[in-house]
Structure formats: C-alpha cells, structure tokens
Amino acid sequence: MHLSPDQIIFWQFGFFKLNATIVYTWGLMLVLVISSRLITRRLSTKLQRSRWQNLLEIIVTGINQQIREVGLNDPQKHLSFLGTLFLFVAMASLFTIVPGYEPPTGSLSTTAALAICVFVAVPLFGIEENGLSKYFQAYLKPMVIMLPFNIISEISRTLALAIRLFGNMMSGTLILAILLTVTPFIFPIVMNALGLLTGMVQAYIFSILATVYIAAASQARQSRPSSETKH
C-alpha cells in the first residue's frame, strides 16, 4: 500500500530516479501531444470540418472564454499556461479509468510542482503587465503593515493549491483501493465514476484559481484579493 506514485520506482541512480509519477506524466504528455498533432495536422479553415477538430475547437475556445470571463483581457497570452494546467490535470483524472494507472496528480510532488509553476507565473505575468515597482507596491497595500500578511497569503495559497489537488486525487485512488479490498464488485465502479467527476471539478478549480491569481496580479490592484475560496 502506497500513498503516492512517487513510491513506485522503476529505476534509480543516486539522486536521479524514474518513478511512476514521471513515467505516467510522460505517457500523458505523449497522448496529449500526439493526439493534438494528429488532429491539427489537417485542419480545415472552411465551414466543413472533422469531429475531432470540432472537439478541440470547443475545448480551446471554451478555455479562452473562461479566461476572458475571469477578467483577463488578452486570453491568448495566458492560454498556453492555463489551458495546459487544465488539460494536464483533467487528463490525469480521466485516465484513472485505465486499470493499473496511477494519476500523477495523486503525487504531492506533481501538485507542488504545478503550484510552484503558478506561484512563479503569477508575479511574472503581473510584472509583465504592470511593471516591477507597481507590482511590488501592491504588497504594501492597503498599508505597509500588511506586507507580511500579503506574503503569507501568497505562500499559503500556493500550498493550498498543491495540497487540495493532491488530497482530492490521492483520496480518490486510496478510497478506490480500499473499496476494492472490501467490496470488489459494483461499488468501486460507482466510486470510480465519482472520482472522475471529482477529478474534472478539481482540474477546473485548479486552473480557474490560477487564472484568478494571474488576473488579480495583472490588473492594477487597488486591493489584493482578501481571501480565497476554500474547497
């Protein structure tokens, strides 16, 4: 019994190792990139187009619209980062229907890596949009005394991002594993379906929170977001 796919190690050489998290991530990356390449190889610019192209267009324009609704006026600049976040987390959850698969998002290392990416991306996009001084001045608002609280808020929300996703994904697979030993018929399937739903919701939450953070940093902030929604 293991809590994280990190613990399944296929190959190790000193500090370097090849665990299930990395291998499944590569697998997901391959699936995403190859399917994208296959579909976008023959794109139609006419009114008639293939179903797969339609599906991808719906996904891309849906993400684009979601980013715009949150408040980012130039969604295409953020689409690569935020869209990939959503697609990676969603695909990691979706593949739980494959027997023997362990979602990489069930590893705290992966979710921490994603949270770190968001943690770094937020100030980068903010500085790009508003300039260095204006971005850092926002930490001193509404008064200087709020600086430590603002910094704690930044760190805590990054932690929350990582742990929320990890907790949800890990619990899903863990509950499934436990149920398989207790009631091996029917019930694990229902829980698996529930796990899929939870995974999709988490993918949405993760990416939408990242969008909100970037949007908050990108706009000329008069006041920082006072609190984040807890899930």
Binding site: K17, N19, I22, S107
Partner: peptide, 8 residues
C-alpha cells in the same frame, strides 16, 4: 511525501 527530484 514530496520528492524534490520529482518536483523538479
């Protein structure tokens, strides 16, 4: 639970 190599 966090493996820093994996994180990187």
């Amino acid at each position: 639970l966090i493996d820093w190599f994996t994180v990187v």
